[in-house]
Design a protein around this nucleic acid. Structure first.
Length: 255
DNA sequence: CTCCATGTTTAGAA
DNA sequence: CTTCTAAACATGGA
């Protein structure tokens, strides 16, 4: 489920339920541990408390009381879940705490975790761009230089961190730009529109707790999918592979 | 059984 | 050098 708004929602939920509590026990099983992770992850978590958090795009970092950070990437299908007794299905990371145990579930195992001592050097090594909610106008506009398709640009995490397949489609739909258009052919006015559409889509989703049915009526995300229709012209969605991802767009409202 | 999936990384082809 | 495509990763759900 996770793009930027989903991960931010996860962050808030985790901090709301786990901040300050002692991790009495930790179990890691069945999720990829990054090679740059320091030490044994279970031992690193046991006895620690979560005292802070950071997020860059789809990457979540939970600060531990010894100065280390627990990095979580949810991949295509990950999510956190608090539980009392039985660990939920697909739990690959279990944190037992004084009250309200926390599981990170990865049904498809695409995702990763790590214990890090420095978040900024990790992000720099990964080449992550600025978080989509903090992207300034100059940086945003400068990205539209090359000939690559605008969709592949929006999905490039070294350009902007946090926009994924669904929110990229939403921005393009709101702006009336086809995903296949070369980035350098997008006008300055359209780039401005893309920028404001990005912020709006992310913030509307956050305000709706990432529950798409609660989104405003003009948004694609509310009705994206087979059988859905363009809110503006009521026409059916067109579907095509762009930048390797399934893209939805309205052939009559986007050009 | 077949196909698809809100992500990332990498190899190989234009 | 830039850009794109396909594949790999792993597996549930339609």
């Amino acid at each position: 489920m996770p793009e930027l708004p989903e991960v931010e929602t996860f962050r808030r939920r985790i901090m709301g339920g786990a901040e300050g509590k002692v991790i009495e026990d930790a179990r890691v099983d069945g999720i990829r541990l990054l090679p740059e992770s320091r030490g044994d992850p279970e031992a690193s978590l046991r006895g620690r408390r979560i005292v802070g958090s950071r997020r860059n795009g789809k990457s979540l970092f939970l600060e531990l009381d010894d100065g280390n950070w627990l990095f979580l990437h949810f991949g295509m299908s990950g999510y956190p879940l608090f539980f009392q007794e039985d660990a939920p299905r697909f739990a690959r990371l279990l944190l037992t705490m004084d009250e309200g145990n926390l599981a990170i579930c990865w049904p498809r195992r695409l995702g990763a975790m790590a214990i890090l001592d420095d978040v900024d050097s990790f992000l720099a090594a990964k080449g992550r761009g600025p978080d989509a909610l903090d992207v300034g106008w100059e940086h945003f506009r400068r990205g539209f230089k090359g000939r690559r398709t605008v969709k592949s640009l929006l999905l490039d995490q070294s350009f902007i961190s946090g926009v994924g397949n669904l929110y990229a489609d939403e921005m393009l739909y709101q702006t009336g730009v086809l995903p296949t258009r070369p980035a350098e052919d997008v006008s300055e006015e359209e780039i401005r529109h893309l920028h404001s559409s990005m912020i709006r889509a992310l913030e509307e989703s956050l305000a709706a707790d990432t529950e798409f049915p609660r989104l405003p009526a003009d948004m694609m995300l509310r009705v994206r999918g087979k059988g859905g229709a363009c809110p503006r012209c009521s026409g059916p969605w067109s579907i095509a592979k762009v930048a390797g991802r399934t893209s939805y767009f309205c052939a009559s409202c986007q050009c």
